[in-house]
Structures are given as C-alpha cells and as structure tokens.
Design a protein around this nucleic acid. Structure first.
Lengths: 284, 284
DNA sequence: CAAAATAAGTCCATATAGTGGACATCGTTT
DNA sequence: AAACGATGTCCACTATATGGACTTATTTTG
C-alpha cells in the first residue's frame, strides 16, 4: 500500500519507463478501495506519499479518460464510467463475482449475518462483495475493495489454505515484512499454524484477530481442476459464532461453495471457443 | 479511436503532464474492445499509432499492475484481474449491467435472437453485453466492448433519441467528422432524420445500415428522473424483423426496459436495511 | 465576523523519466 | 535452410512529468 517517492521507494515498482503510469494506477486502486464512499485529494496525497500537484495532475488525467469521476460538490473522487465498462468486459474472464451473487444472497438471508466474497490477487486477498443480513449488529471491519495479506481474515485464510503448501509458505514469507509492520495480530508463525488448521478442517476460522469481537468463518471455492477461485465467508459477532452455530454455517458455506464452483465450470453466455477464435479473422 | 504521435495528433489529448498515461489508458481500452478474444501486440501498435517499444513498455507496466494479462502461449493480451476488481467495485455506482442481465436473458430466450445492452459514454455508445438466443443464424456485427458514435446501431440510436434534442444535435455535430470518415452508411443528415423518427416512435430501428442484412430494434431505458441510462436492443437477420414481428419485439423491449428502470431506482449500495433485504430476492 | 487553518487547484524552471530507431531473438512458413 | 513476421530489448537524446512555491476556495475557531 506504500508508494514512496525517491530512492527510498520500498515497493518494487522499479521497472523503468513507466513511473507515472504506476503511480496513476496505484491511485486508481486507492480510489477503488473507497468504492461507493469516495475519497479526498488530501487523503490520496497522504496514502500515496506523492506530492499534491502530481496526484492532482494524475487524477485529472484519469478523470479525463473516464476512469475516475469527481463529485462537483463534495470534490470527492469516485470510480468513473470507464472503470465500470472495463470491469464489465473483464467479467467474461473473471466472472466469479456475477456467479457468486446468488450464493451471497442466500448466505446472508439464511445466516442473517454478513456474507463476503474474497478473491486472490498476488499475495493479497481482496474483498469483492459484502452482502448484509438482517441481524442488527454488524461489523464494518471488511468492506468491498479492502485488501489484506493472504491469511488475514477468514475468506483470505481459506484461500491460503487451499493453495499448495509450498505456495502458501512462499506467500507467507513474501508478506512477512508487511505482516510484522501492519498486522500485530498476525505474526507469520501464527499464520502458519492457522493455515495448517484450516487445511485440516477444510474451513478457515478467524476468532476476532483483526478486530476483537469480529469473528468469521470461510471456505474456499475450488474448481474441478483443483484451483482456488476465491472464498465465501460469513462474519458475525463472537456470540453468534460459537461451535454449534459455527458448524452449521460451515456446512452452509460448503454447500454454496460447491454450487458456485459448478456454476463457474460453464461460463454463462460464452459460446464455444473455436467459433469465437474463427470470428476474429472477420475483422479487418 | 485514433492516437497519433507527434504534432499531427488529431485526438485532443492535449492536456499536459500525462502523455504516457493517456496512451496507456487508450491501450487498455483497446484491449477491452477485444474482451474475451485477446489482442496481439502488432495490432495494438497499428490501432494506436504508437511505436512498438512504447506499446510494449506500456503493456508490460499494465500487466505488472494486473490490469492486463498476457497469455503465455498465444502472446495475446487480455484484461487482467485488477480490471475485473476495479469494475466490480464500480458496479456500486454504475450497476446497470448487473441489473440488466435477467432482462437480457429473457429477451434472448423469448426472441431467440441476440439481445444487447448498450450504454452511453461521452459521444459514443458502448455495447456492454451480448446475449445470444437459440436461432442458428447470428450476426457478429456487434460484440461486447464495441463502441460506435451515438446513433450508429439500434441501441445507440435509441439512446440518442432519448436525450434532449439540443444535446442530441450537439452530439451529432461533434461526431460529424468521425461519421463522415468511418461510417459511410451514416451521414449526419440521415442520423438526424432517424433520431427524429426514433423519438416519435419511441423505439429505434436499424435496417442493416452498418452491415447489410443485420437489422435491429432498440428502446431506451429511462429512469424516473427522465435520464437515459442505456438501451436494450435485439438484432436479427432482415427476414426476422419485418413489421409484424418487429412490433412484437418492440413491445417486449418496452416491457423489459420498464422493469429495468424500476430496478435501477433503488441502488444496491444504499444503507437502508429493508431495501437490502428486498434486493436479496434477486436470486433466480 | 475577522482570522487562522485546512483543502483544492495552478505555475513553471529543472532534470528526470519516457521515447523510438536500430538491433536481437523466437517461431512459423515456403 | 532461408526468409518472413512477430515479440522483445537497448540506450542516447530530449521531450516530458515533476514538485516547491504560490493562489484561491472553503471550513473552523477565537
């Protein structure tokens, strides 16, 4: 999440020829983090570590191109229509979100708590969707757009545990500095234990480690090829995740994860690939 | 669609301080155009008018950031996971796509032809989704991601006709050079006639003007505030769009457009608990 | 209601960061 | 096995993005 300028740059954006592009896309991602709420220029300056003129200029360009939109009154920056279009078109390849919506609805309705869809991206888990249930006490610990190191949070941990052990270990090692610096509740050693436990249980459990009182359970969505596509999870206050109920919810999650995996096997509107490919030669 | 380098630059990307960013985002958009199919480096070079090293470097950066992904075997560039994430998060603000899917399914099933969702972006109409029906003869004139000047195509024309006349006229004037250069079937004068006709009919009709034999009808999706959010359309071969059947399809489109408009009135991101709970019954 | 503080937005001299011609490499076609 | 077409790389040059200093708008405070 750090984007320092100058030689002290920590993040390894060191490939040449594209500094401003990296910066701009980083900003775009930051705005996405606050999806629906909007974000102020000053906060972007602070979060990115860039100077104000630079941030402003990049935001202007992103807005001109339609990837961002600024509210004329509040001055808050939001995702723009092009972001929506791009994402909609990407759905053809990464359609888990669309496919997961019914499952999330059912989970939220049945459990009355909050259901989440998390996907992996590099060494992080990203919350793509949050579906609230009827129960009146809700935690706002995890919002759509939030990204945490894999293993931090129930859905994220479920994904980590579903990966080949060697890969999971490599990810933990990669994330170690970040974990030590920003996640006091998640020392790498503890993450290893919990990953092993989650692997054995075939579900992940987070008893309020990120924020006390905010508990959650999650299960991975694994396709026929054995690859993990994401995770479904349910968060609730601790009283509502005691063993008996927890087991029920895990069963529910497993059943929905399986349904979702099946649905992913056959992408909804897609025609057969060969026909599509042949169509390409039609365009001049 | 033109991105020439040097002083001859035609497109007015002339705001300073962000040349490479503009170029990169243009490339991202080009890749999105070929969503699902992928696009070659050489084609991007050709389409963008940029040099090969530049395109390559920008693509590398976009890939490093996750907005693009390159197929290791075919070398084709596709939209990457970050594009999907960004778009998913933007859905909260621009959710017409998600909301329209059931309508598109019903339209494709009922008509057996191909149903489209088109949205406006600046002076263009963008095809966001294509839902194929059972009828075996299908045209591939319009694909998800394609963008044409507003008025070119049934959905696009429906949007143009739904705008305030003054705005529509401004759009046509803005697009005039592009229309004359690239759309021989759509001289501005003809577009004016057709817009007026579509406005009077409350549906748009395209009798194979883009490609002979590929006919289509479209209607605008207008919210309670009178704003046009997009358009639904159906394309078929000419034999299947003769007056009697055309009238049927228009009726079908109107009913779906109305349902969609209603659904858009209560955005999914609203905090209202009751509304949320009601949203849950979306699962089919 | 001034005055101070905080935020957004702008300018322009400077050097750093991106550019593209030329070259290297890989895979396919004849 | 030689020619072609495509992707990918290098590096000298200068066009380009940068950010310190400044202005303007909006909110908070004494």
């Amino acid at each position: 999440m750090t984007m320092r300028r100058g030689k002290t740059d920590v993040s390894k954006d060191d490939a040449p020829g594209t500094q401003s592009l990296d910066r701009a896309l980083g900003l775009l991602r930051l705005v996405a983090t606050r999806a629906g709420r909007g974000i102020r220029l000053s906060e972007l300056v602070q979060q990115s570590g860039l100077t104000k003129p630079t941030v402003h200029r990049l935001l202007q360009a992103l807005e001109r191109q339609g990837f961002l939109a600024q509210d004329g009154v509040t001055k808050l920056y939001h995702l723009g229509p092009e972001s929506f279009v791009i994402g909609t078109l990407a759905h053809e390849r990464y359609g888990i979100h669309r496919a997961a919506l019914p499952s999330l609805s059912r989970l939220a309705t049945a459990s009355e708590d909050t259901a989440f869809l998390t996907v992996r991206r590099d060494w992080y888990g990203i919350c793509l969707h949050r579906q609230e249930g009827a129960f009146p006490i809700r935690s706002y610990v995890l919002q759509a757009g939030d990204r945490h190191p894999l293993g931090v949070g129930a859905g994220s941990l479920a994904i980590l545990a579903a990966l080949p052990p060697a890969e999971a270990e490599a990810i933990i090692q990669h994330n170690t500095p970040d974990l030590l610096a920003r996640y006091p509740g998640f020392p790498p050693e503890r993450l290893r234990e919990q990953t092993a436990l989650a692997r054995a249980n075939v579900y992940a459990f987070n008893p309020g480690q990120l924020y006390a009182g905010s508990w959650a359970v999650g299960v991975a969505v694994v396709n026929r090829a054995g690859q993990c596509e994401g995770a479904l999870s349910i968060a609730a206050i601790d009283q509502r995740l005691q063993p008996a109920r927890c087991a029920q919810l895990v069963a529910l999650l497993h059943s929905e994860a399986e349904r979702l995996a099946e649905r992913l096997e056959r992408p909804a509107g897609a025609t057969n690939i060969a026909a599509r490919a042949r169509q390409n030669s039609m365009n001049h």
